[in-house]
Write a protein that binds this DNA or RNA. Sequence first.
DNA 1: CGCTACATTGAATCGAGTCAACACGCGTGG
DNA 2: CCACGCGTGTTGACTCGATTCAATGTAGCG
Lengths: 231, 231
Amino acid sequence: MKSAVGPICKNCKSRSQSLFSFCQVAETEQINSNKSTQVFRKGEYIFVENNVPAALYCINSGMVKLSKSVANGKEQIIRIAQEGNFLGYRSLILKSRYPYSAIALEECRICIIPKADFFALLRNNNDFYQALMELICKEADEAEAKLSDIAYKPVRSRIAEALLLLANASTEEDHAITLTREDLASFVGTVKETAIRVISELRDANIISIDKRKIRILNPQMLTYISNVCD
Amino acid sequence: MKSAVGPICKNCKSRSQSLFSFCQVAETEQINSNKSTQVFRKGEYIFVENNVPAALYCINSGMVKLSKSVANGKEQIIRIAQEGNFLGYRSLILKSRYPYSAIALEECRICIIPKADFFALLRNNNDFYQALMELICKEADEAEAKLSDIAYKPVRSRIAEALLLLANASTEEDHAITLTREDLASFVGTVKETAIRVISELRDANIISIDKRKIRILNPQMLTYISNVCD
DNA sequence: CGCTACATTGAATCGAGTCAACACGCGTGG
DNA sequence: CCACGCGTGTTGACTCGATTCAATGTAGCG
């Protein structure tokens, strides 16, 4: 990772997609003056599981995986975050350690906002507070939904669901998915080999295409169907 | 379910354990004057998945399971709530439908607080707001932790973990666990038969005892150990 | 007393993980 | 410019944990 000249919050292209859209210009100036910006290369850690948080992270560009390390050197990817998303606020609020690591999936530009500024914003801007509350509620809902998915849906369905989700969130042309097979597997709670087998099946059935490792969705209806089939 | 004379919030024995501990007496009076209280018998629904919430629920006594119905008429128990716990606040905040049902596991006395009073409290009491925010953060963390547990730990470990958790939260003498095998299975994401097999093994190994269906923990250290073994 | 809900056990089956071998493509350094 | 190595992707064979199906036992309650 290395320091970089950052964007100006006020004019940041991801501001409108982030919680900062609830901030006044004066507030963004305040945030802007204290933040720093760093570039992380693919694979670099933005923060590490079990560490004590000291700042709020805001993704200016790039994709980040949030993952817990579990038994046998495996990992569980909890969520994938992108441009405009915040990272680490829950641990700041709880004054607890990070429950997962944040790792760059590609070159990422990240703004680092001192926690004092984050707390000041929470204190002074009720709209921001409220929006953050709603965001966290959604995260809780999503985690619980994913919970029952993993518990009851077969891998095939979970992969189908993940592909739809990832394609939707993709910033590539054609909504291509660029995750490695390993990351895709960790995202749905399986192993690389199993993920590959399912992907190959879907390719053979012309539901997706694979070009230079990139996955593209050809038949979203069919994927939706598969994502709901639980035998 | 039937209406009942409710407790007085101000003097409620569960107030100190609930978020209402962040309320002023005047606020509890306000809440108290508009709430109603109902008794639900074992198996009765307090609210139903996908319905639109109209109120906040506060458990005065009894255990409640929060569960999603999944494929093949199975269910996934997300959480078990008890005396002093609130239900349904996330859906109120998000103005969304309930992502799961709340079902009484035993006779429950539940106070029903109009959503207007809940929102008023949120608006006027920052300590309450903050405490609720922290609670929701914890729920999100727990859901994510459970997620990776289900994805990577074998059933045996998950049952061991659940038994420790449930015994700890138990209000029975001796911290006995009274859940049915089926509910225990749904809680850890497996089926009744598998849960029974694991429980029988643990009994044979003298790690737990079973008396009239009630489970008691004999060797918590061993259970803790088992809960962390992932082969 | 008998019904009904819950608990238990066995046998068969299957989805998914593990292990192992191999293919592909990209970048570096000789 | 090519060879080598490493990260990633792919495929097959085997194994095993867990689900399913089926039968039977047990306890509580009207």
